[in-house]
Design a protein around this nucleic acid. Structure first.
Lengths: 257, 257
DNA sequence: CGTACGTTTGATCTTTCTCAATAATGGTGG
DNA sequence: CCACCATTATTGAGAAAGATCAAACGTACG
């Protein structure tokens, strides 16, 4: 079966299935939700802080980030969204969004109607449970970010973010073994770590000098994965991913295509 | 009806009801859950990072906090729990806890069996929806904390935490109009803001000198609420509380006693 | 080929941390 | 009730991580 004919919600469904086993009717119900596929440019907004939305989006392709601005205009990035992530579960049940979501790269999203999703959750307990689990796992990542930004120095923060991103990509089956394309400018990396772009630059160079990363433009490679994890005080526990040996084993996962 | 005969889950149920209207059978089901009431001393653990639990706790009386340690042993406080908060919804659906929860003061908790809660959620869509909303609101607070610690200076951070705590207390009908008892040492406040105790002390004194707070031991009073909010870049939006005028109006809320 | 954006570099300045000591405060046993 | 102890709060001096300011350098792309 050709790759291009993959259902746009494939990754999302797989993500859900990690958390909770859904039976066939549940999966059917999700896949048959009325949806609209949209292509977006880098920088376009998926959600704008303070506004209410009719639909919830799932990221199919490309990257996005959550962000919030302070009163004096500085920005904090709150999460990185990768393909398969539900971008605004918040808006499904809360009235207006407490943060913005913006595309990091160009990409594709699927819009689902808020109403439909609410009905789905109310009608299908297993889906509700899966949504709860996804939300809880996301909260766990947020807690780790609070720690990262609150109690780690610049070097640790950056190493940690790199580790997290790499592991999450790999868990979704995206990104290669020999590094990945970091879809961020150093300024954006600064806004995710609570640092200045200048300092991010210096730390990246230091990490490179210490042999923890190789960079070629935005492409990052980890010559010493273990050392990088250590430098970033990183442990994958908080991501609540399935055990590593399951990741590369497609058996038991729903074949959606 | 005497205050002492209040049902221990009263505040929790009220909190749930803010988010979603539950019908009588739903509320009954929650109140009839088998439960165990326990009194705990300050400092005792409700949840320990990395371990699995049989039950989920709801804080009835006293205060608690979520925390995580870094590799080098420093601590970050991730959330303050006030009476009526469910302390470990995480453990209800995720296998082992990604952080610890510890009592800040002495207090009382109610343990509910994990199993029972799961069944409740699976059987009652409205309860599931309420749990999702509570979890989403908690995530929103976490996002604000990332911003606080990532992009605000010491003075703003501390003012912000004070505002948040005061507003949350008031929304639960706890704490007085003329200030409140901050149940934290300056060291703990440092761990919630990503600062050192020494610096927290200096900032508190500065806030006092500027007429933004009055302190008498741990009791804090806000002579100029508006100015403090401004100093902390605080806006209650992210707390997803019901509109202010509903708060002091008990009509429409379930009378649980 | 020039413009715009991102990266890199240097010099200087600030906030916050660290270390260290002293003073309150609350609780405890006698 | 008092003396003592353990926390917690306060203060000072010096150090350091990271911010700020400013400029030069690359690279992509129209």
């Amino acid at each position: 079966m050709p790759f291009t004919k993959t259902h746009p919600l494939k990754l999302f469904l797989r993500e859900i299935s990690y958390h909770r086993t859904l039976d066939e009717p549940d999966r059917e119900a999700i896949l048959n939700l009325p949806m609209r596929v949209r292509k977006l440019d880098a920088g376009s907004y998926l959600v704008r802080e303070g506004s209410a939305f009719e639909h919830c989006s799932v990221l199919v392709d490309g990257f996005a980030f959550r962000q919030k601005l302070t009163g004096d205009g500085s920005r904090q990035i709150l999460a990185l969204c990768i393909p398969g992530d539900a971008v605004d579960l918040q808006n499904m049940f809360l009235d207006n969004s407490d943060h913005s979501v913006q595309m990091l790269t160009s990409g594709t999203i699927v819009d689902l109607r808020k109403q439909d999703l609410q009905e789905l959750v109310l009608a299908r307990p297993a889906v509700a449970a899966a949504v709860i689990q996804i939300t809880l796992a996301e909260a766990s990542i947020l807690r780790e970010w609070v720690v990262n930004v609150g109690r780690r120095d610049a070097r640790e923060r950056i190493a940690h973010v790199l580790c997290e991103f790499a592991v999450r990509l790999e868990a979704r089956g995206i990104g290669g073994d020999d590094g990945f394309e970091l879809p961020m400018t150093q300024e954006q990396l600064a806004d995710t770590t609570g640092l200045t772009p200048v300092h991010v630059n210096r730390v990246l160079k230091a990490l490179e000098a210490d042999g923890l990363i190789n960079r070629k433009r935005r492409h990052i490679h980890f010559p010493n994965w273990r050392a990088l994890q250590q430098a970033g005080d990183f442990s994958r526990q908080y991501l609540h991913l399935p055990p590593e040996d399951v990741l590369h084993d497609q058996h038991g996962l729903p074949a959606v295509s």
